[in-house]
């Protein structure tokens, strides 16, 4: 997956008076034992919008977030958060960014209220303002009745909401969420996203999130960055990315490994097939052209006596993802 990262649509240039929410330039980060987690990443996240970072496990998403949140250093490149340089003014960045980490970071041996209160005090809130803010957040996150309980007695979803409240306590200009819906049920995830969208719209908060739910990124984000092995493989708006795949996608389940190999090879020989990718045992072929192209693909399947269900659809963000972030068997 080497080569120049491609931008499907022209990269948006932010006017100087309104710096991007996040501006990442040629970022390189190597961990002590030589793992190159980020290998020259560049992108920018627009103000007041939601930017999604996608990529398989180990792509470097969390490392990227830790670097922009000043937790971990980096070897080369630069990051600007709300126009502030992470390397030269880390203290200022910390006031402007709110982070919800992939793993928990609240103290399980304290109550939800105490966790939130400590966080608020750290950012200088006190007195009536502090109480009002905590009340508002607990209300928002639907944690009011559980606030006095020890966090270790919370369910996974409650704990996630508390973490979100802690990230929002100081009304950050930029909110960064690392897989916030990973352990959350679909209804709660929906609630979380409507809240985040609302913050974006009403308070002009900028949001950067990572997720494995491609439909989430498709629906919420105005810009999508796909990472793989520490590099940006493609970025663009969900529409642009989908338009890039103009043809159809033929999906077929192939459980027998020998047939699977033969079909894959035969498909790749077809001029109209642009790409073949695997989602588990499902083969997905991007095809270009009219009904005749579809016909020759179906002929291949018939020739190998494939009898399972076959579907033809328009490409989804999934197809873009599998195409760029691996998925080859």
């Amino acid at each position: 997956m080497a080569g120049e990262p491609r931008t499907v649509a022209p990269a948006r240039a932010a006017p100087a008076a309104h710096p991007a929410a996040i501006e990442v330039r040629s970022l390189v980060k190597t961990y002590p034992r030589g793992v190159r987690a980020l290998d020259g990443i560049s992108f920018s996240a627009a103000r007041g919008e939601i930017t999604a970072v996608l990529g398989p496990n180990g792509a470097g998403k969390s490392t990227l977030i830790k670097a922009m949140a000043t937790l971990t250093g980096f070897d080369a490149g630069s990051i600007g958060v709300d126009g502030v340089d992470v390397r030269t003014r880390p203290a200022e960045v910390r006031r402007r960014i709110g982070v919800v980490s992939q793993s928990y970071s609240s103290d399980p041996s304290a109550t939800g209220y105490d966790n939130l209160r400590l966080q608020a005090r750290i950012y200088g809130l006190r007195g009536d303002r502090l109480r009002a803010r905590l009340h508002e957040l607990l209300d928002w996150m639907d944690l009011g009745s559980a606030a006095g309980r020890l966090v270790r007695t919370y369910s996974g979803g409650m704990r996630r909401r508390l973490e979100l409240a802690m990230g929002l306590v100081h009304e950050p200009a930029v909110l960064v969420l690392d897989e916030p819906t990973a352990a959350v049920d679909p209804v709660a995830a929906e609630g979380l996203w409507s809240l985040v969208t609302e913050l974006c719209r009403d308070r002009r908060m900028s949001v950067l999130l990572t997720t494995h739910q491609l439909d989430e990124a498709d629906r919420l984000a105005s810009w999508v960055v796909i990472l793989n092995q520490g590099a940006v493989v493609v970025q663009g708006s969900p529409q642009d990315l989908k338009e890039e795949l103009s043809g159809d996608v033929v999906a077929v389940r192939l459980t027998d490994p020998a047939t699977a190999r033969q079909v894959e090879a035969a498909m790749k020989r077809l001029a109209q097939v642009r790409n073949v990718a695997w989602t588990g045992a499902e083969l997905r072929a991007d095809i270009q052209g009219d009904a005749r192209a579809l016909g020759s693909v179906l002929e291949v399947l018939t020739a190998h006596s494939v009898t399972g269900p076959v579907s033809v659809s328009r490409p989804s963000l999934n197809d873009i993802y599998f195409r760029h972030a691996g998925g080859h068997r």
Binding site: A69, T70, L71, A91, R94, R95, I97, V99, S101, S103, Y104, S105, S106, D107, P108, Q119, I122, Y123, G124, M166
Partner: peptide, 16 residues
Amino acid sequence: MDLERGVLDRLLMSPV
């Protein structure tokens, strides 16, 4: 313990 629970990381990302 704070390090294992992520509390330390949170503090390091805050203005403390």
